[in-house]
């Protein structure tokens, strides 16, 4: 269902809805109205974009990861040209440039945007609040091992950490390692193991507790 847009068509006719907004939200509404008034965007274009963003959940990214886990040649294509590989799964993230980085037994990868909150929205939806916090953005460059421990992620001592700072035009997603004892799992079952945080790189996929491999 389209989200109702608060209109600011007449400054003398401020609705109760508008007055209840925070200052930042009011600026947002004012910018929307200006863009529409000046014909830069159409009102339906705006609601379509908002609806599109709202429909994307991390399940989109999980699907990509699960496919890479079951199909080695897809994995290779994903690591070489992520945009084209996603298209194979009918996921069109263009014109966004995406780089997928594969974790290995030696190197663990984690993603941040130290300057703002750049995030692979077309695969993971909206970023979590902690990803946008200045604490995460400042600390994960400097002390990623400690930050990961706070997420409950304990890497092996010898594992190296590479932090990817998405400062400009590229977006990043981590391809986690497929957990052991999942040989009998189907692709859609595997996708369930891949959480948003695993694709940011602050967690590693876990088997559900009580999961039997027998």
């Amino acid at each position: 269902m389209p989200k109702p847009r608060i209109a600011l068509t007449n400054l003398h006719d401020l609705s109760a809805d508008f007055l209840s907004l925070t200052p930042v939200q009011k600026i947002g509404v004012a910018i929307q109205e200006l863009l529409i008034e000046k014909g830069i965007i159409a009102p339906d274009e705006l609601s379509q974009s908002i609806n599109l963003i709202d429909t994307i959940t991390p399940a989109q990214g999980s699907r990509v990861v699960a496919r890479a886990w079951v199909d080695a040649s897809f994995k290779e294509r994903l690591l070489t040209d992520a945009v084209a590989a996603c298209l194979e799964l009918q996921i069109d993230i263009r014109p966004i440039h995406l780089i997928v980085i594969g974790n290995t037994s030696k190197i663990h990868n984690v993603i941040v945007c130290t300057l703002c909150s750049c995030y692979p929205r077309m695969l993971l939806g909206l970023p979590p609040d902690w990803y946008k916090s200045s604490a995460y953005r400042a600390r994960v460059i400097h002390e990623p091992r400690t930050v990961l421990r706070e997420f409950g992620t304990h890497l092996k001592e010898h594992a190296q950490i590479t932090v990817h700072d998405s400062t400009a035009d590229m977006r990043y997603m981590v391809l986690p390692i497929r957990p052991d004892n999942t040989d009998n799992m189907k692709e859609d079952e595997l996708a369930e193991l891949v959480t948003r945080d695993c694709m940011i790189g602050v967690k590693i996929p876990q088997l559900p507790s009580g999961f039997s491999t027998a």
């Binding site: 590479t162 400009a168 590229m170």
Partner: peptide, 14 residues
Amino acid sequence: NKTCEADIVEVEIY
């Protein structure tokens, strides 16, 4: 004086 825990940091630069 605190050691950086990241082994590698990769960043886009113009």
